[in-house]
Protein backbone atom coordinates (compact mmCIF):
# COMPACT_ATOMS: atom_id res chain seq x y z
CA UNK A 1 0.00 0.00 0.00
CA UNK A 2 2.80 2.43 0.92
CA UNK A 3 4.43 1.68 -2.38
CA UNK A 4 1.28 2.69 -4.28
CA UNK A 5 0.89 5.86 -2.19
CA UNK A 6 4.49 6.79 -2.99
CA UNK A 7 3.87 6.29 -6.71
CA UNK A 8 0.66 8.36 -6.62
CA UNK A 9 2.47 11.16 -4.78
CA UNK A 10 5.34 11.06 -7.27
CA UNK A 11 2.98 11.27 -10.25
CA UNK A 12 1.04 14.20 -8.80
CA UNK A 13 4.24 16.03 -7.86
CA UNK A 14 5.49 15.60 -11.40
CA UNK A 15 2.33 17.04 -12.98
CA UNK A 16 2.96 20.75 -12.33
CA UNK A 17 6.52 20.40 -13.60
CA UNK A 18 5.29 18.75 -16.80
CA UNK A 19 2.60 21.36 -17.24
CA UNK A 20 5.20 24.12 -16.90
CA UNK A 21 7.55 22.36 -19.30
CA UNK A 22 4.96 21.90 -22.02
CA UNK A 23 2.92 25.04 -21.38
CA UNK A 24 -0.27 23.19 -22.19
CA UNK A 25 -2.87 25.53 -20.84
CA UNK A 26 -2.35 28.56 -23.07
CA UNK A 27 -1.23 27.12 -26.41
CA UNK A 28 -4.07 26.56 -28.84
CA UNK A 29 -3.73 25.07 -32.31
CA UNK A 30 -2.75 28.18 -34.25
CA UNK A 31 -3.06 26.72 -37.76
CA UNK A 32 -6.53 28.20 -38.44
CA UNK A 33 -5.19 31.67 -37.64
CA UNK A 34 -2.05 31.59 -39.80
CA UNK A 35 -1.59 32.60 -43.42
CA UNK A 36 -0.88 29.65 -45.69
CA UNK A 37 2.46 31.03 -46.84
CA UNK A 38 5.09 32.98 -44.90
CA UNK A 39 3.36 32.68 -41.56
CA UNK A 40 5.09 33.48 -38.28
CA UNK A 41 3.57 31.23 -35.66
CA UNK A 42 5.99 32.45 -32.98
CA UNK A 43 4.15 35.80 -32.85
CA UNK A 44 1.25 33.91 -31.27
CA UNK A 45 3.25 32.33 -28.50
CA UNK A 46 1.53 32.70 -25.16
CA UNK A 47 -1.74 33.93 -26.64
CA UNK A 48 -4.95 32.26 -25.59
CA UNK A 49 -7.59 30.98 -27.99
CA UNK A 50 -9.93 33.77 -26.83
CA UNK A 51 -7.38 36.43 -27.76
CA UNK A 52 -6.82 34.87 -31.17
CA UNK A 53 -10.57 34.57 -31.73
CA UNK A 54 -10.99 38.26 -30.93
CA UNK A 55 -8.33 39.23 -33.46
CA UNK A 56 -9.94 36.94 -36.00
CA UNK A 57 -13.29 38.69 -35.55
CA UNK A 58 -11.65 42.07 -36.08
CA UNK A 59 -9.77 40.99 -39.20
CA UNK A 60 -12.91 39.32 -40.59
CA UNK A 61 -14.93 42.47 -39.94
CA UNK A 62 -12.44 44.76 -41.71
CA UNK A 63 -11.83 42.41 -44.64
CA UNK A 64 -15.54 41.77 -45.21
CA UNK A 65 -15.94 45.51 -45.77
CA UNK A 66 -12.77 45.77 -47.88
CA UNK A 67 -13.90 43.14 -50.37
CA UNK A 68 -17.10 45.07 -51.06
CA UNK A 69 -15.26 48.17 -52.24
CA UNK A 70 -14.98 48.69 -55.99
CA UNK A 71 -11.33 49.74 -55.68
CA UNK A 72 -10.34 46.54 -53.89
CA UNK A 73 -12.50 43.90 -55.56
CA UNK A 74 -10.83 40.50 -54.95
CA UNK A 75 -11.53 39.40 -58.54
CA UNK A 76 -9.32 42.12 -59.93
CA UNK A 77 -6.96 43.08 -57.09
CA UNK A 78 -3.62 41.49 -56.28
CA UNK A 79 -2.32 42.48 -52.87
CA UNK A 80 1.30 42.76 -51.82
CA UNK A 81 2.18 41.69 -48.28
CA UNK A 82 5.30 41.48 -46.13
CA UNK A 83 5.98 38.65 -43.73
CA UNK A 84 3.81 39.48 -40.69
CA UNK A 85 5.61 40.51 -37.53
CA UNK A 86 2.60 40.33 -35.20
CA UNK A 87 -0.25 37.99 -34.43
CA UNK A 88 -2.72 40.54 -35.82
CA UNK A 89 -0.68 40.65 -39.06
CA UNK A 90 -0.90 36.88 -39.42
CA UNK A 91 -4.65 36.94 -38.87
CA UNK A 92 -5.13 39.82 -41.26
CA UNK A 93 -3.29 38.06 -44.09
CA UNK A 94 -5.21 34.87 -43.41
CA UNK A 95 -8.48 36.81 -43.67
CA UNK A 96 -7.37 38.32 -46.97
CA UNK A 97 -6.55 34.84 -48.27
CA UNK A 98 -9.94 33.55 -47.18
CA UNK A 99 -11.65 36.48 -48.91
CA UNK A 100 -10.18 35.23 -52.20
CA UNK A 101 -7.52 37.89 -52.74
CA UNK A 102 -4.43 37.02 -54.72
CA UNK A 103 -1.53 37.61 -52.35
CA UNK A 104 1.98 38.44 -53.52
CA UNK A 105 4.80 38.25 -50.99
CA UNK A 106 7.25 41.13 -51.23
CA UNK A 107 10.48 41.88 -49.44
CA UNK A 108 9.73 45.53 -48.62
CA UNK A 109 6.70 47.69 -49.44
CA UNK A 110 6.61 47.11 -53.19
CA UNK A 111 3.41 47.27 -55.19
CA UNK A 112 0.35 49.44 -55.81
CA UNK A 113 -1.75 47.42 -53.39
CA UNK A 114 0.69 46.99 -50.54
CA UNK A 115 -1.19 45.95 -47.40
CA UNK A 116 -0.68 48.05 -44.25
CA UNK A 117 -2.43 47.40 -40.99
CA UNK A 118 -2.20 48.52 -37.40
CA UNK A 119 -3.51 48.20 -33.88
CA UNK A 120 -3.42 51.05 -31.36
CA UNK A 121 -4.53 51.17 -27.74
CA UNK A 122 -6.41 54.31 -26.72
CA UNK A 123 -7.68 55.68 -23.47
CA UNK A 124 -10.95 57.45 -24.25
CA UNK A 125 -13.91 58.83 -22.34
CA UNK A 126 -15.56 55.48 -23.00
CA UNK A 127 -12.68 53.63 -21.40
CA UNK A 128 -9.92 51.62 -23.01
CA UNK A 129 -10.56 50.95 -26.68
CA UNK A 130 -8.39 49.41 -29.34
CA UNK A 131 -8.29 50.97 -32.74
CA UNK A 132 -7.59 48.67 -35.72
CA UNK A 133 -6.92 49.78 -39.28
CA UNK A 134 -6.28 48.29 -42.68
CA UNK A 135 -4.99 50.22 -45.70
CA UNK A 136 -4.56 49.21 -49.32
CA UNK A 137 -3.48 51.82 -51.84
CA UNK A 138 -5.58 54.93 -51.16
CA UNK A 139 -8.25 53.06 -49.23
CA UNK A 140 -8.17 52.94 -45.42
CA UNK A 141 -10.62 51.19 -43.12
CA UNK A 142 -10.61 51.87 -39.39
CA UNK A 143 -12.78 50.82 -36.49
CA UNK A 144 -12.54 50.85 -32.70
CA UNK A 145 -13.29 47.76 -30.68
CA UNK A 146 -13.74 47.13 -26.99
CA UNK A 147 -13.09 43.88 -25.17
CA UNK A 148 -15.25 42.69 -22.31
CA UNK A 149 -16.04 39.43 -20.55
CA UNK A 150 -18.14 38.15 -23.47
CA UNK A 151 -15.63 38.92 -26.18
CA UNK A 152 -14.82 41.79 -28.50
CA UNK A 153 -17.36 44.30 -29.86
CA UNK A 154 -17.20 47.32 -32.19
CA UNK A 155 -17.32 50.63 -30.36
CA UNK A 156 -17.46 52.94 -33.37
CA UNK A 157 -18.72 53.12 -36.93
CA UNK A 158 -16.40 51.70 -39.55
CA UNK A 159 -14.55 54.57 -41.13
CA UNK A 160 -13.76 54.07 -44.83
CA UNK A 161 -11.59 56.67 -46.49
CA UNK A 162 -10.48 56.84 -50.13
CA UNK A 163 -13.24 54.78 -51.72
CA UNK A 164 -16.01 55.86 -54.10
CA UNK A 165 -18.20 52.94 -53.10
CA UNK A 166 -18.00 53.03 -49.30
CA UNK A 167 -21.71 53.76 -48.91
CA UNK A 168 -22.62 50.47 -50.60
CA UNK A 169 -20.85 48.42 -47.92
CA UNK A 170 -23.18 46.19 -45.93
CA UNK A 171 -21.69 45.22 -42.55
CA UNK A 172 -22.58 41.79 -41.24
CA UNK A 173 -22.09 42.22 -37.50
CA UNK A 174 -23.71 38.91 -36.59
CA UNK A 175 -20.25 37.52 -35.79
CA UNK A 176 -20.17 39.84 -32.79
CA UNK A 177 -23.67 39.13 -31.51
CA UNK A 178 -22.96 35.39 -31.55
CA UNK A 179 -20.63 36.03 -28.60
CA UNK A 180 -23.66 36.80 -26.45
CA UNK A 181 -23.61 39.05 -23.37
CA UNK A 182 -25.56 42.16 -22.60
CA UNK A 183 -24.24 44.88 -24.79
CA UNK A 184 -25.12 47.48 -27.36
CA UNK A 185 -22.97 48.61 -30.25
CA UNK A 186 -23.25 50.90 -33.23
CA UNK A 187 -23.09 49.51 -36.74
CA UNK A 188 -22.59 51.36 -40.01
CA UNK A 189 -20.08 53.10 -42.23
CA UNK A 190 -18.79 56.64 -42.14
CA UNK A 191 -17.01 57.95 -45.19
CA UNK A 192 -14.86 60.94 -46.15
CA UNK A 193 -17.42 61.92 -48.77
CA UNK A 194 -20.46 63.81 -47.49
CA UNK A 195 -22.54 62.70 -50.47
CA UNK A 196 -22.11 59.06 -49.50
CA UNK A 197 -24.39 57.99 -46.70
CA UNK A 198 -25.01 54.57 -45.32
CA UNK A 199 -27.53 53.18 -42.87
CA UNK A 200 -26.50 53.44 -39.24
CA UNK A 201 -28.12 51.22 -36.66
CA UNK A 202 -27.73 50.08 -33.10
CA UNK A 203 -27.21 46.40 -32.48
CA UNK A 204 -28.43 44.90 -29.22
CA UNK A 205 -26.64 41.83 -27.93
CA UNK A 206 -28.47 39.57 -25.49
CA UNK A 207 -27.43 36.59 -23.41
CA UNK A 208 -29.54 34.33 -25.55
CA UNK A 209 -27.54 35.34 -28.65
CA UNK A 210 -24.66 33.29 -27.29
CA UNK A 211 -23.93 30.63 -29.90
CA UNK A 212 -21.89 27.50 -29.24
CA UNK A 213 -18.42 27.63 -30.79
CA UNK A 214 -19.13 24.96 -33.37
CA UNK A 215 -22.31 26.72 -34.52
CA UNK A 216 -20.81 30.18 -34.99
CA UNK A 217 -20.33 31.74 -38.42
CA UNK A 218 -16.79 30.93 -39.45
CA UNK A 219 -14.51 33.42 -41.12
CA UNK A 220 -14.51 31.31 -44.27
CA UNK A 221 -18.30 31.24 -44.47
CA UNK A 222 -18.82 34.91 -43.69
CA UNK A 223 -16.23 36.11 -46.20
CA UNK A 224 -17.37 33.59 -48.82
CA UNK A 225 -21.00 34.67 -48.49
CA UNK A 226 -20.13 38.36 -48.47
CA UNK A 227 -18.12 37.91 -51.64
CA UNK A 228 -20.88 35.94 -53.33
CA UNK A 229 -23.51 38.54 -52.44
CA UNK A 230 -21.23 41.33 -53.55
CA UNK A 231 -20.59 39.69 -56.93
CA UNK A 232 -24.31 39.14 -57.37
CA UNK A 233 -25.00 42.81 -56.63
CA UNK A 234 -22.54 44.07 -59.26
CA UNK A 235 -24.14 42.42 -62.29
CA UNK A 236 -25.88 44.53 -64.92
CA UNK A 237 -29.58 45.12 -65.16
CA UNK A 238 -30.50 45.30 -68.84
CA UNK A 239 -33.45 45.66 -71.17
CA UNK A 240 -33.22 42.57 -73.34
CA UNK A 241 -34.94 44.41 -76.23
CA UNK A 242 -31.87 46.61 -76.64
CA UNK A 243 -29.75 43.60 -77.51
CA UNK A 244 -29.35 41.02 -80.25
CA UNK A 245 -28.60 37.43 -79.30
CA UNK A 246 -25.25 36.27 -80.68
CA UNK A 247 -24.18 33.00 -79.15
CA UNK A 248 -25.45 30.45 -76.70
CA UNK A 249 -23.78 27.70 -74.69
CA UNK A 250 -25.14 25.32 -72.10
CA UNK A 251 -22.65 24.38 -69.40
CA UNK A 252 -23.25 21.27 -67.35
CA UNK A 253 -22.29 21.14 -63.66
CA UNK A 254 -21.84 17.57 -62.45
CA UNK A 255 -24.10 17.96 -59.43
CA UNK A 256 -26.51 20.47 -57.98
CA UNK A 257 -24.17 21.21 -55.10
CA UNK A 258 -20.81 21.45 -56.85
CA UNK A 259 -19.04 24.65 -57.65
CA UNK A 260 -16.36 22.91 -59.70
CA UNK A 261 -16.74 23.90 -63.30
CA UNK A 262 -14.30 21.54 -65.01
CA UNK A 263 -11.98 22.05 -67.98
CA UNK A 264 -14.66 21.69 -70.66
CA UNK A 265 -16.88 24.42 -69.23
CA UNK A 266 -13.86 26.63 -68.58
CA UNK A 267 -12.79 26.27 -72.22
CA UNK A 268 -16.30 27.21 -73.40
CA UNK A 269 -16.22 30.39 -71.30
CA UNK A 270 -12.77 31.21 -72.58
CA UNK A 271 -14.05 30.91 -76.19
CA UNK A 272 -17.09 33.06 -75.43
CA UNK A 273 -14.93 35.66 -73.69
CA UNK A 274 -12.60 35.74 -76.69
CA UNK A 275 -15.44 37.18 -78.81
CA UNK A 276 -16.33 39.89 -76.27
CA UNK A 277 -16.88 43.37 -77.67
CA UNK A 278 -17.41 46.50 -75.57
CA UNK A 279 -21.16 46.80 -74.71
CA UNK A 280 -21.71 43.03 -75.05
CA UNK A 281 -23.52 41.36 -72.17
CA UNK A 282 -23.42 37.74 -71.09
CA UNK A 283 -26.77 36.62 -69.73
CA UNK A 284 -26.51 33.71 -67.28
CA UNK A 285 -29.51 31.49 -66.56
CA UNK A 286 -28.61 29.20 -63.68
CA UNK A 287 -31.96 28.91 -62.00
CA UNK A 288 -34.43 26.38 -63.32
CA UNK A 289 -36.62 26.23 -60.23
CA UNK A 290 -40.29 27.00 -60.27
CA UNK A 291 -40.37 29.23 -57.22
CA UNK A 292 -37.46 31.42 -58.31
CA UNK A 293 -35.52 31.00 -55.08
CA UNK A 294 -32.50 28.75 -55.31
CA UNK A 295 -29.32 29.47 -53.37
CA UNK A 296 -27.26 26.81 -55.13
CA UNK A 297 -28.34 28.16 -58.53
CA UNK A 298 -27.26 31.65 -57.44
CA UNK A 299 -23.91 30.19 -56.36
CA UNK A 300 -23.47 28.59 -59.79
CA UNK A 301 -24.36 31.85 -61.53
CA UNK A 302 -21.76 33.67 -59.44
CA UNK A 303 -19.24 30.94 -60.26
CA UNK A 304 -19.79 31.55 -64.00
CA UNK A 305 -19.57 35.30 -63.41
CA UNK A 306 -16.24 34.86 -61.62
CA UNK A 307 -14.90 32.82 -64.54
CA UNK A 308 -15.80 35.58 -67.00
CA UNK A 309 -14.20 38.17 -64.71
CA UNK A 310 -11.02 36.05 -64.74
CA UNK A 311 -10.95 36.76 -68.48
CA UNK A 312 -11.13 40.49 -67.71
CA UNK A 313 -14.81 40.77 -68.62
CA UNK A 314 -16.22 43.57 -66.42
CA UNK A 315 -19.05 42.68 -64.05
CA UNK A 316 -21.27 45.27 -65.78
CA UNK A 317 -21.11 43.02 -68.84
CA UNK A 318 -22.78 40.16 -66.98
CA UNK A 319 -26.41 39.78 -66.06
CA UNK A 320 -28.36 37.06 -64.27
CA UNK A 321 -31.51 36.04 -66.12
CA UNK A 322 -34.64 35.37 -64.08
CA UNK A 323 -35.48 31.80 -63.12
CA UNK A 324 -37.10 29.69 -65.78
CA UNK A 325 -39.03 26.59 -64.99
CA UNK A 326 -37.38 23.92 -67.10
CA UNK A 327 -38.38 20.78 -65.27
CA UNK A 328 -39.37 19.57 -61.85
CA UNK A 329 -36.45 18.71 -59.59
CA UNK A 330 -36.87 17.15 -56.22
CA UNK A 331 -34.79 18.86 -53.54
CA UNK A 332 -32.78 15.66 -53.07
CA UNK A 333 -32.02 15.41 -56.80
CA UNK A 334 -28.28 15.88 -57.20
CA UNK A 335 -27.99 14.97 -60.86
CA UNK A 336 -26.14 17.24 -63.36
CA UNK A 337 -27.57 20.72 -63.79
CA UNK A 338 -27.40 23.11 -66.74
CA UNK A 339 -26.34 26.74 -66.78
CA UNK A 340 -27.16 28.61 -69.97
CA UNK A 341 -25.09 31.52 -71.22
CA UNK A 342 -26.17 33.84 -73.99
CA UNK A 343 -23.89 36.42 -75.48
CA UNK A 344 -25.90 39.55 -76.30
CA UNK A 345 -24.76 42.43 -78.47
CA UNK A 346 -26.19 45.92 -78.16
CA UNK A 347 -28.24 47.01 -81.16
CA UNK A 348 -26.84 50.04 -82.99
Amino acid sequence: MNNIRRQIAAVFLTMPILALLFGCQSTPDVEPYLPRINSTADTMAGMSKAELDNLQLVSTNLVSALLQLRETNPSTTTLQVSTPGTAFGNLMIRALEEAGYSVQHVSADQGLNYVRYGKRNSETEAGFVVDYDLSIGKVTLRREYITNRSGIFPSSLMSIVGSQSASTVVLDDSIFTEQGGNDLFISGVETDNASQRSEIKTVQVKDYDLTPDDKRTTQQILLGNTRKQQLGRTVASININDYTRMRRAVLIFDTRTTNIMGRGNKRAISLLAREYQPNDVYSITACTDADGEDESAFTRAVRVQEEFMGHEIPSKAITFAPCIRASFRHTSDNSPVPVTIEQLRRKN
Binding site: E97, Q104, I260, E306, H311
Partner: peptide
Protein backbone atom coordinates in the same frame (compact mmCIF):
# COMPACT_ATOMS: atom_id res chain seq x y z
CA UNK B 1 4.21 24.57 -55.45
CA UNK B 2 2.48 27.46 -53.67
CA UNK B 3 5.63 28.20 -51.66
CA UNK B 4 7.89 27.93 -54.70
CA UNK B 5 5.70 30.10 -56.89
CA UNK B 6 5.21 32.69 -54.12
CA UNK B 7 8.99 32.87 -53.75
CA UNK B 8 9.26 33.43 -57.51
CA UNK B 9 6.99 36.48 -57.14
CA UNK B 10 3.62 35.15 -58.29
CA UNK B 11 0.44 36.15 -56.52
CA UNK B 12 -1.12 33.15 -54.81
CA UNK B 13 -4.89 33.06 -54.80
CA UNK B 14 -6.89 30.52 -52.85
CA UNK B 15 -10.17 29.74 -54.57
CA UNK B 16 -13.20 27.77 -53.45
CA UNK B 17 -13.51 25.62 -56.58
CA UNK B 18 -11.56 25.80 -59.88
CA UNK B 19 -11.82 29.54 -60.52
CA UNK B 20 -9.28 31.51 -62.49
CA UNK B 21 -7.39 31.44 -65.75
CA UNK B 22 -4.22 30.19 -64.03
CA UNK B 23 -5.69 27.37 -61.98
Amino acid sequence: AARTLAKAGYGIQRVTADQGINF
